[in-house]
């Protein structure tokens, strides 16, 4: 694997390998010395054409814990605002011998374009492109789910997939790359996904996606899903009226205090509430829900660093150009 562009094309074994490696990275995060020498001398460039707090910080922390050098590049205040093209920016980074480019772009497909071009030799990691994909977010969500549910079952999480889990993804599916990446990854790992959204916030062609669609959040919550993933209402991408008012949205599609109380009383005893952040408190999620013990928002941020360490390590540490012979693998020196 040279690039991480999407979860749609990620095989189950590759995903589990990333999650298992993240498990070891998480163990490093609990030690006194939270640093590994694995990527010493490697350069990771964070190339952000769109605003981001946690993804950029998380990638930066991950690269630094693996001893890589990090260059942060934000389009605002760079030559991009003077009209520099993606190609010229990429070639500049190539000239600085970047080994990996973590790219967030407002245009869907920009990371794939970069990876397919001969502008740059580096590994490309998609950190969110338009409304297409955000693979590391989906991986950290899967990691959070796997950890939580294997802990409850009292089983080790290494090597496990997500078979048997039922997950509801609720809200602005139309504009959400997180929803798309999660849908592909979670179904690849064997979980059942139900999308819950107003019809105006569902994309065209949803009937071809491997999921169920519901228009009634309370009905889905009553079935006791293992996790409810609330999506951010992406006001900045909305150029039309998708719902009548924010109050109506919060009442019909938001995880409010009433739904939290209903969940506490009902079958969904261990249901967790996930949110990729940043949250619109009071809109898609109430403060009480966001701060409840069921909420995994902060665990997701913590796990994000481990998962991104795993991705950087697996993409950058080895030389995959030569295939190993069985004999080489068997040598223990």
């Amino acid at each position: 694997m040279k690039h991480l562009l999407s979860t749609e094309n990620l095989q189950g074994t590759q995903a589990i390998r990333i999650l298992d490696t993240a498990e070891e990275m998480a163990a490093v995060g609990e030690r006194e010395v939270k640093k590994l020498p694995a990527l010493r001398g490697r350069t990771v460039v964070n190339l952000f054409f769109e605003d981001s707090t946690r993804t950029r910080i998380s990638f930066e922390a991950a690269a630094k814990r693996l001893s890589a050098d990090v260059i942060n590049f934000a389009a605002k205040g760079s030559s991009v605002s003077k009209g520099e093209s993606l190609k010229d920016t990429a070639q500049t980074l190539e000239a600085m011998s970047a080994d990996a480019v973590v790219i967030r772009h407002w245009a869907s497909g920009a990371p794939a374009r970069l990876a397919a071009s001969d502008w740059i030799d580096a590994s490309v990691i998609n950190a969110g492109d338009g409304t297409h994909e955000h693979p590391t977010q989906a991986l950290l969500d899967a990691f959070t789910l796997r950890r939580h549910w294997s802990k409850i079952a009292g089983l080790p999480s290494l090597g496990e997939d997500l078979r048997g889990l039922r997950i509801a993804i609720v809200g602005d599916v139309l504009h959400s790359r997180v929803a798309r990446s999660n849908l592909w990854l979670l179904t690849t790992l064997g979980a059942e996904v139900t999308l819950v959204a107003p019809p105006t916030l569902l994309p065209v062609g949803i009937d071809t996606w491997p999921c169920r669609v519901s228009f009634d959040l309370d009905e889905v919550l009553a079935t006791g899903p293992h996790a409810v993933m609330m999506l951010r209402v992406q006001g900045e991408r909305m150029n039309a009226a998708f719902f009548p008012s924010t109050r109506e949205y919060a009442r019909t599609w938001g995880f409010d205090d009433e739904r939290l109380a209903a969940l506490e009383a009902s079958a969904g005893k261990d249901t967790i509430i996930m949110h990729p952040g940043p949250m619109n408190r009071g809109l898609e999620i109430s403060s009480a829900a966001a701060d409840s013990p069921r909420s995994t928002v902060l665990a997701q941020v913590r796990n994000g660093v481990s998962v991104r360490m795993a991705v950087l390590y697996l993409l950058l540490s080895g030389d995959d150009s030569a295939q190993p012979t069985p004999a080489q693998e068997a040598i223990t020196v």
Binding site: R17, D20, T21, E23, E24, M25, A27, L36, P37, A38, L158, Y313, L314, L315, S317, G318, D319, D320, A322, Q323, P324, Q328
Partner: peptide
């Protein structure tokens, strides 16, 4: 004690996933 990520030949071999310590 897993030593995978401390090896000096990581870049000469295909990626090795680390194991538990």
């Amino acid at each position: 004690l897993d030593v995978t990520m401390f090896r000096d030949d990581l870049r000469k071999h295909p990626t090795r996933p680390p194991g538990p310590t």
